[in-house]
C-alpha cells in the first residue's frame, strides 16, 4: 500500500514537471514520461510476481498444460508492453508508429497462439469425426 501511495505521489510530481518541461522542451518531457513509465513498470513487477506465482500454483493444481500458460503469459506481456509504448508514441505526436506497434504485437500474439488454434481444431476434428 505504501509503495502504491509513493508511486502515485511520484506520478503527480512527474506530471507537474512534464507540464513545465512541455512548454520549454517537448523532447525532455517525453524522456521524463518514458523514465517514469519504466520506474512504474519496476513497481508493477513487484506486485505482479506474487500473482504470477499464484497462477503457477493454480496451474500445477489444475494440471494445466505448461505450454498453454506460457503462451498466455507471453501474449499478456506483449499486449501490455505494446499498449504502453503505443501510448508513449501518441504522446510524442507519432500515432502511426504507435498503431504500427499494435499491429506488430497482434501479429506476434497470433503467431504465438498458433499451437492453441491447432490443438482446438484437432480436438474438434476428433470429436466431430467420432459423431
Amino acid at each position: 500500500m505504501d509503495t502504491f501511495l509513493k508511486a502515485t505521489a511520484g506520478l503527480i510530481i512527474a506530471l507537474v514537471f512534464y507540464l513545465i518541461l512541455a512548454k520549454q522542451n517537448k523532447d525532455y518531457s517525453l524522456i521524463l514520461t518514458v523514465a517514469v513509465c519504466c520506474l512504474l513498470a519496476v513497481c508493477l513487477i513487484g506486485y505482479i510476481q506474487p500473482v504470477v506465482a499464484f497462477i503457477s500454483r493454480l496451474q500445477i493444481l489444475g494440471q494445466l498444460n505448461v505450454d498453454m500458460m506460457k503462451i498466455i503469459l507471453k501474449a499478456v506481456g506483449i499486449a501490455l508492453l505494446s499498449e504502453v509504448v503505443s501510448l508513449i508514441c501518441n504522446d510524442a505526436g507519432n500515432a502511426s508508429l504507435g498503431k504500427m506497434l499494435q499491429f506488430l504485437a497482434s501479429a506476434v500474439i497470433l503467431w504465438l497462439s498458433l499451437p492453441l488454434f491447432t490443438s482446438l481444431i484437432d480436438l474438434l476434428e476428433k470429436i466431430l469425426g467420432a459423431i
Binding site: 506483449i78 499486449a79 505494446s82 499494435q102
Partner: peptide
C-alpha cells in the same frame, strides 16, 4: 483499449 485486447 487497443487492438491487442481483442487478440488476447
Amino acid at each position: 483499449s487497443g487492438m491487442s485486447k481483442n487478440i488476447i
